[in-house]
Design a protein around this nucleic acid. Structure first.
Lengths: 214, 214
DNA sequence: AGACTAAACGGACTATGGTCCGTTTATTAT
DNA sequence: ATAATAAACGGACCATAGTCCGTTTAGTCT
């Protein structure tokens, strides 16, 4: 198996796949850069708290943090990159739970139970961080290149195989994770008023059918 | 059942749900408006043929069609709206085939076969019109408000019920149609080099499992 | 024909993400 | 301490979607 984990995350005691890969730790961060990073992250959180995700524009962020606009883009690459960075901590926690945490989400439970729990957890996550997740999705290079997405996919794929899935596990994992697409989930919850528990039920039904019909 | 069809499409002999709803036919279109609509549509097609979808900017389109920019937005509402209009004909044809055409896509075949055929057809459609479909997806109000999307969903839902599906057919239909998300399909085909037939196989497998596991 | 009106027009203007490149600065080597 | 250098900085600049509103015009009514 490919080495998916690596050490050095400052955000979580446990190793994790960053939502947004930091630059190689080879060269230490310069002190002014570190200071500006802190300023920017703080300003971003304040801005979101005050004006919501939509109120965070790159110009305003730069102004509020007292840095130039170029600095913002140098640091985060894009608006989506910034959002990804803001989600990094909670994403790391999520990863820790489904990879190393207690069952049924973590190892120790049957694959099907873990799949179900994974979906439930992901649904809760998306509902909780709604706008942030949405804003992070518009990465220039598509939402499929986010490293963490590859990890979720792989996780689902592994669980499918563990359950003896005999089809095309990689594509099936992709189809399943499409059902957890944040834009869809939030559209259902917000525009159609679907309660998250109903989404969880439908997810359980879906994975059960996919796994059972062997 | 809700009345989903209505008469009056100029694009297809058979009634269809427009990708982009035209203004109510109550007030006839003024002659200058009609002339400019033609010019714009023609210019848009030329522009796309010459420079690809990405090369079509609203400014350039306006200039090429010899109209003001305001006119372009008055007509199509947004860039995505324009793309939707450009896809209207092929979408109508697609709808006609799965609603009234010959089996297995059209009525007359078992629900499961129709579901399979629907996915295959949709995959082919997305692969064929790739960039256009992608550009049409960025509608300001999310890709779930496109009227045609509601029709696809409903179609899948009806077929599920026909097969005696005993879960939550509406949500399950949504999960299934998420598997046909154009961005995902095109990412698989273009970035990962997955042949469309493999996508079709996986779709067939998915719907079969969902329907069978009753 | 002439006036009237609602619709259509057009292009300047705004908002915003993202880029460029000349300038400044933290760090390191001597 | 000084010089050298790679990195970081900053803000003017660009591209593009979308808005606004004063002006023009097609169609209609008398």
């Amino acid at each position: 198996m490919v080495r998916l984990l690596f050490p050095g995350s400052k955000l979580n005691p446990v190793t994790s796949i960053p939502l947004r890969p930091e630059p190689a730790p080879a060269a230490a961060e310069r002190s002014d850069a570190a200071r500006n990073r802190e300023r920017l992250l703080l300003a971003a959180k304040e801005l979101i708290a005050d004006c919501g995700t939509a109120g965070l524009t790159m110009d305003r962020l730069a102004e509020r943090a007292g840095v130039g606009k170029g600095t913002v883009f140098r640091r985060f690459g894009s608006r989506a990159g910034l959002m990804l960075t803001l989600l990094n901590d909670s994403e790391a926690a999520f990863q820790a739970r489904f990879m190393f945490g207690p069952p049924p989400l973590g190892p120790g439970a049957p694959g099907l139970d873990r799949l179900t729990a994974f979906g439930a957890e992901r649904i809760a996550y998306v509902v909780e961080f709604g706008d942030l997740v949405l804003a992070a999705e518009n990465a220039s290079r598509g939402r499929f290149e986010v490293p963490a997405a590859a990890l979720w996919l792989r996780h689902i794929e592994v669980l499918l195989r563990e359950e003896g899935f005999d089809g095309d596990p990689w594509l099936m994992a992709g189809s399943l994770s499409a059902a957890l697409d944040p834009e869809r989930l939030l559209d259902l919850v917000r525009r159609h008023g679907v309660p998250p528990e109903r989404l969880v039920d439908s997810w359980r039904d879906l994975v059960t059918r996919v796994v059972r019909a062997a």
